[in-house]
Design a binder for these strands. Structure first.
Length: 504
RNA sequence: GUCCUGUUAGCUCAGCUGGUAGAGCACGUCACUUUUAAUGAUGUGGCCGAUGGUUCGAAUCCAUCACAGGACACCA
């Protein structure tokens, strides 16, 4: 039985006592007429009054009891609603005969949700409070809350029982409010720019648009397997073919890979595609987007992140090859030669998989020596074509693509490029990926011939970008684990014990 | 996937080189009409993550398993 714990039994007893005395422990006729935040704002003038009270005003507020201090015939109770915390002052003589001693003191406790009415006053210690003349239990909590001072710190409980984390930790609520604001602002920013929000399938016949292992599910009626999408890219580009010139989608992607501080199997991204633009335009709109977020979230330009300080007034732009030398300290002549890169990496104690091509090796150098050093926002541009199967080649230098990734605080935040719209080249790139897949790269991109056919009807020159919303929120809220910006991060199931006896 | 660390009361944590399981908060009872983690008195509360092993004796030592956190690998 899940309620066999003695503390819970005790509280169930209290709920029953209340019920027997005619007080519904789960009443629903709330008469609340203000929130705590509004109450505190509206009555802030009471402190200036002569008696430090205004008995002509009357408010009804509701909230969960977080602190309960009973002192004989009077009590101080701190209640909390979504907007804030309020101290209420309850006395025996201001409530109906017997209520205070028999009902309130014996059956109401921390965790219960109550509703109180009364007038504003300021205590001797200067705290604006509510002088209670009516009291009502709205909801009895039969499980006790965690300890009031330390709260709940066990990460496993915090993630598995997020509701407890939210009850106990105001700053966690704050983080998720900011997350919501970021998504809302993102939506508004792109809508204001004339982008159309669209929804494309979450279940794909071919897992395309990125290099990643998909989750597989099965559609019974069609008798086919489907893949949870790893990226919406190829569908969004089909819409550009169809004639929409600016589209975006904010939604979940799913990747069947390892989990750690920056990876969850389902994560949220925004992808947007913009016809008649290039990746250079994307750099500009990205800067504008950050400015917009910072302005509306009231964030400082010098944003602290852990031990770092990120200067959002200092956007840099460096071609990838150049960054290997200027940031990574790799000798320039090493960076353009396969064998020399392998030798250099080996010299630094890094072994590389056999059969890597030049572009992949340059990517390896970047990951190893550059990425972590990019603290202020940096657009790394001109990626090798071998590691950019969906990006447009540079006209003068066909071995590089018109692409950038944005790095902030040593972490990738966005990936963007001028889209490859040459169907013949796209087909060849897919074939290259197929070859890589056959030689063992199980994350190589899948062939999507329907997408190639779509391109064959002509996709206007287009630039597209993806931004990882979770990582962005981590950055803006100074959180260092993706689990702290996901309400319900992925966790292994815990197997129930003692279930044998309870079930037949 | 691999390695390291952790798992003791509802919560936060002690528990040495093996010898009857501890504190604070919470909860019960009593006192208290301006407290701020209220206070004072008093009491209840544990399959020491699970299963095996070593031992006269295991929360403690060993093995396996489960879950978590961190690091590495791969990815975003």
């Amino acid at each position: 039985m899940i309620f066999e714990n003695k503390y819970i039994q005790q509280r169930i007893e209290k709920a029953n006592t209340l019920k027997d005395a005619g007080y519904n422990p789960y009443a629903n006729d709330s008469k609340r007429n203000t929130t705590i935040e509004k109450y505190l704002n509206v009555n802030s003038d009471v402190a200036e009054m002569e008696n430090k009270r205004d008995e002509k005003r009357h408010y009804i507020v509701s909230g969960r009891i977080k602190f309960l201090r009973i002192m004989g015939k009077a009590s101080f109770v701190k209640i909390e609603d979504e907007s804030g915390m309020l101290q209420v002052y309850i006395t025996r003589d201001n409530l109906p005969e017997g209520f205070y001693n028999e009902i309130f003191k014996k059956n109401i406790e921390v965790g219960d949700i109550i509703e109180v009415g009364g007038f504003p006053f300021v205590t001797g210690k200067g705290e604006l409070s509510l002088h209670v003349d009516s009291f009502k239990l709205l909801t009895k909590a039969i499980s006790p809350l965690p300890e009031k001072f330390h709260g709940i710190t066990d990460k496993e409980i915090r993630y598995r029982k997020r509701y407890l984390d939210l009850i106990m930790n105001a700053e966690v609520r704050k983080t998720f409010q900011i997350r919501s604001r970021v998504i809302s602002l993102t939506r508004r920013f792109f809508e204001d720019k004339g982008f159309l929000e669209v929804e494309t399938p979450m279940m794909h016949p071919i897992a395309g648009g990125a290099n990643a292992k998909p989750f597989v599910t099965h559609h019974n009626a069609l008798g086919v397997d489907r893949y949870l999408r790893i990226a919406p890219e190829l569908y969004l580009k089909r819409l550009i073919v169809g004639g929409f010139e600016a589209v975006f989608e904010i939604n979940r992607n799913f990747r069947n890979e390892g989990m750690d501080a920056t990876h969850n199997p389902e994560f949220t991204s925004i992808e947007f595609y913009w016809a008649y633009k290039t990746y250079k335009d994307l750099i500009e709109i990205t800067k504008e987007y950050f400015q917009y977020l910072f302005e509306h979230l009231n964030l400082p330009t010098l944003l602290p992140y852990g031990d770092l300080e990120v200067n959002f007034a200092n956007f840099q732009e460096i071609p990838l090859i150049e960054s290997l030398t200027t940031v990574g300290g790799v000798p320039a002549d090493v960076t353009k030669d396969k064998e020399r890169i392998i030798a250099y990496l080996n010299e630094k104690g890094i072994t590389v998989k056999p059969g890597m091509n030049l572009g992949q090796l340059q990517g390896e150098l970047f990951d190893e020596f550059v990425e972590k050093k990019l603290i202020d926002p940096t657009f790394i541009t001109e990626y090798p074509v071998e590691i950019s199967p969906l990006a447009r080649r540079n006209d003068e230098h066909p071995e590089i693509t018109e692409r950038f990734e944005l790095f902030i605080a040593g972490r990738e935040i966005a990936n963007a490029f001028s889209e490859l719209n040459d169907p013949i080249d796209q087909l060849a790139r897919f074939e290259g990926q197929m070859a890589a897949k056959e030689s063992g790269d199980d994350e190589a991109h899948e062939m999507d011939s329907d997408f190639v056919e779509a391109l064959s009807y002509g996709m206007a020159p287009t630039a597209g970008q993806g931004i990882g919303i979770d990582r962005l929120v981590m950055l803006l809220t100074n959180e260092h684990s993706i689990r702290d910006v996901l309400l319900f991060p992925a966790m292994k199931p815990v197997q129930e014990e003692n279930t044998k006896e309870d079930e037949e």
